Simulated scan of single mutants.
Amino acid sequence: MHVVNVILAGGASRRFGEPKASHMYQGKPLYEHVKEQLLEGQTVIISHPSLLPFFKARGEQSVWLDDEEVRGCGPLAGIYTAMQKQEAEWYLVMACDMPFIRKETAEVLSSYCSEHADAIIPLVQGRLQPLSALYHRRSLPFIRACLKENQFAVKDLLQKLQVRIVSEEELNVTSNEFRNINKRSDLPENGMI
């Protein structure tokens, strides 16, 4: 199974006050906490233009801006761009603001990939986690259709796909593993989750 890891780091981070991907936490930027927990293989970063120098300075090779025709259209644009630019069977999509995700969780999630599913989505604390999920390449036409119809919410896409929902019990997740960092106060001072 050929998987490309996709880190979504193109958001405006308005509530956070600075780009979350580059925020230093426990000696490294938030995106690196995420990157270290992804599956084996290539990782691409979908970035905001202002972060390109930061990623270049950190030696990141595969950093792309959203495709021009969908720039500014949210996470779906990032997923679309990754699928357009990099051929793979599956794409593990991960938001850059989830530093507590574990490699074991990504591995378990990938074990649910099959020919019967277009997307593998965790369900944690009663909420779907579509920005910590796997998408098969066959979902690309549906993503393109959503973007053309100005349906930018990932939930709109999921209604068009064959989705395999994976419960937190199946994933054996830790309590805060899927916590998004939206404000600085969401990051524990001592690093404990």
Score class of each variant (00 low, 15 high):
138 R>Y: 10
84 Q>S: 11
17 G>C: 15
78 G>Y: 02
150 N>F: 02
74 G>H: 02
38 L>R: 05
79 I>V: 14
107 E>C: 13
106 A>V: 09
150 N>Y: 03
51 L>I: 01
88 A>C: 08
64 W>L: 15
64 W>G: 01
101 I>K: 00
112 Y>D: 10
99 P>Q: 09
154 V>Y: 01
110 S>T: 13
90 W>A: 00
84 Q>K: 12
3 V>Y: 11
10 G>V: 06
150 N>R: 15
164 R>T: 08
112 Y>W: 13
134 L>T: 05
180 N>A: 14
37 Q>G: 07
63 V>N: 10
99 P>H: 03
45 I>N: 01
158 L>N: 08
173 V>P: 01
90 W>H: 03
104 E>F: 08
78 G>D: 05
84 Q>T: 07
93 V>M: 00
61 Q>M: 08
18 E>H: 09
19 P>G: 08
93 V>L: 11
104 E>Q: 02
167 S>P: 07
37 Q>I: 01
60 E>S: 02
39 L>M: 04
101 I>D: 05
61 Q>R: 10
34 V>L: 13
9 A>Y: 00
122 P>G: 04
30 L>T: 00
184 R>K: 13
62 S>D: 12
127 R>W: 01
97 D>R: 06
76 L>S: 06
89 E>H: 14
5 N>E: 08
132 S>E: 11
36 E>P: 04
119 A>S: 12
188 P>F: 02
84 Q>L: 06
78 G>C: 03
37 Q>S: 02
148 K>V: 04
81 T>A: 13
25 Y>Q: 04
85 K>R: 14
42 Q>W: 07
86 Q>W: 03
177 E>N: 11
184 R>P: 13
34 V>R: 02
50 S>A: 11
52 L>G: 06
117 A>L: 04
186 D>S: 05
10 G>F: 07
9 A>I: 02
28 K>I: 15
3 V>I: 15
152 F>W: 05
35 K>Q: 10
162 Q>L: 09
165 I>R: 09
143 I>P: 08
121 I>Y: 01
95 A>N: 15
138 R>P: 00
72 G>N: 09
135 Y>R: 11
70 V>M: 05
190 N>C: 12
111 S>T: 03
77 A>P: 06
171 L>F: 08
187 L>M: 00
47 S>P: 03
42 Q>T: 10
52 L>Y: 01
148 K>C: 09
38 L>T: 13
177 E>P: 11
186 D>F: 00
167 S>G: 15
20 K>W: 03
79 I>P: 02
